[in-house]
Nucleic acid binder design. Structure first.
Length: 293
DNA sequence: CCGCGGGCCTGAGAGC
DNA sequence: TGCTCTCAGGCCCGCG
């Protein structure tokens, strides 16, 4: 489920209860996630303080006082839920919710501020890993990630450089985390529509000869940044799994222009096209064949 | 190295 | 109602 805007929404929900707090108790109820949790997972966290909670692409990174970093990935169906310690002021509800255990609650963090953070993941494509901070540069999960799309360094020249010589489709290229990190199926479709570029176009065609950025690359960079910023402002998109850490839904699914809208009119002003669904690399692509060229 | 297809898991929804 | 089938927002691996 979660692409960059959903992960960022989760980060913003977790930061207030995790940053500056210590892990009082850590329960790994199920360790057989996407990659197995280490046997000493709880031990290495308990008593440890979270100095900061960051994000890289679709990974959350908790910077720990011990010098380790806790890496977390939501996979397709992962979510975090926060129960605030302050709920203790309404004991009935608090104790009820505190004791409620849902299916697929795999990891539970009890923080020393009284908050409880629960990781839930039905499909178990998500996982967590603890790595020493000085080895973060060599971390295989992070090492080959491309630029952060909302960072200043991500511009038309960088995107054109990544797409240069690529024979694959623009859709595949944007889904490739090595070229730009954090987009998934939804936001790739949405960004391409905003940039009026066809998902079927060869990726190399947004780089000019010699790989110089084109006006198309410029439009695409602007579209990517805009759609991600809009989605973050809306708390992400909730199709099936994504929840904010307070359990509320994100809102951005109401603003989709093409995703899951096959057969509906293209929202581009003056365009009479109809949104189509095609399959690329075994995944659905939604686009308008009239205004996306 | 490149590009593609398969597989990992469970649950929701469609169709019968 | 209940069964079966398909599909789902990510990512890694192996193949040619």
């Amino acid at each position: 489920m979660p692409e960059l805007p959903e992960v960022e929404t989760v980060r913003r929900g977790l930061a207030p209860v995790m940053e500056g707090a210590r892990f009082r108790k850590v329960e790994a109820r199920r360790g057989d996630l996407r990659w197995p949790l280490p046997k000493d997972f709880a031990q290495r966290l308990e008593g440890n303080r979270v100095n900061g909670l960051g994000r890289r692409a679709k990974y959350l990174l908790a910077d720990l006082a011990s010098g380790d970093v806790l890496l977390m990935h939501l996979g397709m169906s992962g979510s975090f839920r926060v129960l605030h310690g302050s709920r203790a002021k309404t004991p009935g509800r608090y104790h009820h919710e505190r004791s409620k255990q849902r299916a697929h609650d795999h990891v539970v963090f009890q923080m020393d501020n009284g908050s409880i953070v629960t990781f839930n993941d039905p499909r178990r494509f998500g996982s967590m890993k603890i790595v020493p901070r000085e080895k973060l540069d060599e971390e295989p999960l992070l090492r080959s990630l491309g630029p952060e799309p909302l960072g200043n360094e991500f511009d038309a020249a960088m995107l054109a450089g990544g797409c240069k010589g690529k024979k694959t489709s623009l859709k595949s290229a944007l889904s490739d985390q090595r070229i730009v990190a954090g987009l998934g199926n939804i936001y790739v479709c949405e960004a391409l529509h905003r940039a009026r570029l066809s998902p079927k176009r060869r990726a190399s065609t947004i780089a000019g000869r010699s790989g110089a950025p084109t006006e198309r690359a410029q439009r695409l960079v602007e579209a990517i940044k805009a759609v991600l910023q809009d989605a973050i402002a809306a708390g992400g998109s909730s199709l099936r799994d994504h929840r904010r850490t307070d359990g509320e839904l994100g809102d951005f699914q109401h603003n989709f222009r093409v995703y899951d809208r096959a057969g509906k009119p293209c929202p581009t002003p003056g365009c009479n096209g109809v949104i189509r669904r095609i399959v690329q690399s075994a995944r659905s692509t939604f686009f308008c064949p009239v205004c996306q060229k």
